[in-house]
């Protein structure tokens, strides 16, 4: 069995609800989607039990009603697992993963700035990457956001 299949079978063995939710996209790429209520335990299991200790980055996606977050994790720098979860756009709150991955700070600030996801537990600090005088509740990476939304017409 390939390493990708091992990951798939270990995860479905541990979590029944992941049956059919894991895809092997190609060699060295595995994708997995999980509801946010189950996210903390799956994330914890991946990091602490399966050795996924490298966070490549976090991608944020606006999918209309929901905002998706993809945590790109790897156990060894070879295989990358895209762990996908989502929250309602109306009230997008997720817990920061900074306690586990210090490097997540900048990735989470980026998502908070550009997609308006509240990151619980993220320490007070500089915003990234928008300017300090950026208007509140303007999240440029949301699909309904257009440059003319701001007074100065940022483009």
């Amino acid at each position: 069995m390939s390493q990708e299949e091992n990951i798939l079978s270990e995860l479905t063995g541990r979590f029944n609800f992941l049956e059919g939710k894991i895809n092997i996209l190609r060699q060295r790429r595995v994708s997995l989607e999980v509801g946010y209520d189950k996210f903390p335990e799956v994330f914890d299991y991946l990091v602490n039990k399966m050795g996924f200790n490298f966070l490549h980055t976090i991608t944020g996606l606006d999918e209309g009603e929901r905002i998706f977050l993809i945590y790109h994790l790897s156990p060894d720098g070879r295989i990358v697992l895209n762990l996908k979860t989502s929250v309602l756009k109306a009230n997008p709150i997720v817990k920061s993963v900074m306690p586990i991955f210090l490097n997540a700070e900048i990735y989470e600030r980026e998502i908070a700035d550009l997609l308006g996801v509240k990151m619980e537990g993220l320490p007070i600090g500089h915003r990234y990457p928008l300017t300090d005088d950026w208007p509140v509740n303007e999240f440029p990476l949301r699909k309904d956001w257009k440059p003319h939304n701001t007074e100065e017409g940022v483009s």
Binding site: H56, T57, T59, G60, L61, I70, H72, L102, N103, E105, I106, Y107
Partner: peptide
């Protein structure tokens, strides 16, 4: 790292870039 999501059109739905310097800030 580049993440690209396509939607069947000639324009991407999302392009995400993580350049190496960002990973080395901490």
């Amino acid at each position: 790292v580049h993440y690209v999501r396509s939607n069947g059109t000639e324009k991407p739905d999302r392009v995400k870039v993580r350049a190496p310097t960002l990973a080395n800030i901490q």
